[in-house]
């Protein structure tokens, strides 16, 4: 309940008015779970903007996947991240990789949830895409029927880059591609995914993007 109000009263007005979106391909977003949405990651705003793209009724089904070491580093942040934002925390330490790391995600998918994943793993350099980690391929190899939808953001790294806490409004472009199906090979699948993002990025690149 609190979570729905948070998105309705705080996040949606913030995203729609203060930031302002140009969305292309909104129809490609999944309208029911289980499904995975993957996006490039430049800012904390990425999660909030993605959540705001879903209809209000679907919000209880959608969960961002986030790093436990970052979001559970103190009690208040943890309570906020888990209950209000609705993250599913995962342990990204190498020792905990594979089976255990993905278990909560597999459970969520089996419950028909829509997961938001940032395969870069971290926000990184503003407005620059880092190399994708293969966790998403591991996940799909275990649940091959789940569709995966690529979403590319351009401009959010300007609004609220890593390390800044002052939000500066800019119009942001959001490009959504049709869902990709699992092709059975981990390595090959990550290549297909990277190519889908390259294509979205090319359609996004135009003069006026950050040249800092």
């Amino acid at each position: 309940m609190l979570r729905r109000l948070f998105y309705l009263l705080l996040v949606k007005p913030l995203v729609l008015f203060l930031i302002g979106l140009n969305v292309r391909g909104r129809e490609h977003l999944p309208n029911s779970g289980p499904a995975i949405v993957v996006a490039n990651h430049n800012s904390h705003l990425d999660t909030l903007v993605l959540m705001s793209l879903f209809p209000q009724a679907l919000i209880p089904q959608v969960h961002p996947v986030a790093a436990a070491d970052y979001f559970c580093r103190n009690r208040w942040l943890k309570a906020f991240a888990l209950n209000i934002v609705g993250i599913i925390p995962i342990d990204r330490r190498p020792s905990a990789r594979d089976g255990d790391t993905l278990a909560p995600l597999l459970t969520a998918l089996d419950q028909g949830k829509i997961l938001i994943l940032f395969p870069e793993g971290t926000r990184g350099q503003p407005e620059r895409r880092g190399k994708f980690k293969s966790g998403v391929a591991h996940l799909l190899s275990k649940r091959p029927d789940v569709p995966i939808t690529p979403v590319f953001f351009s401009g959010l790294g300007k609004c609220l880059p890593k390390g800044e806490f002052v939000l500066v409004p800019f119009f942001v472009d959001v490009f959504i591609a049709p869902a990709i199906a699992w092709n059975g090979r981990r390595q090959g699948f990550m290549e297909v995914l990277e190519q889908a993002f390259d294509a979205l990025q090319i359609s996004a690149d135009k003069p006026g993007c950050d040249q800092g």
Binding site: G155, E164, V168, P169, F171, C209, G212
Partner: peptide, 14 residues
């Protein structure tokens, strides 16, 4: 906002 989104801005000027 539309103007600032169009023009190139420097990251340092956040």
């Amino acid at each position: 906002k539309e103007y600032l989104s169009l023009i190139p801005t420097r990251r340092a000027d956040h």
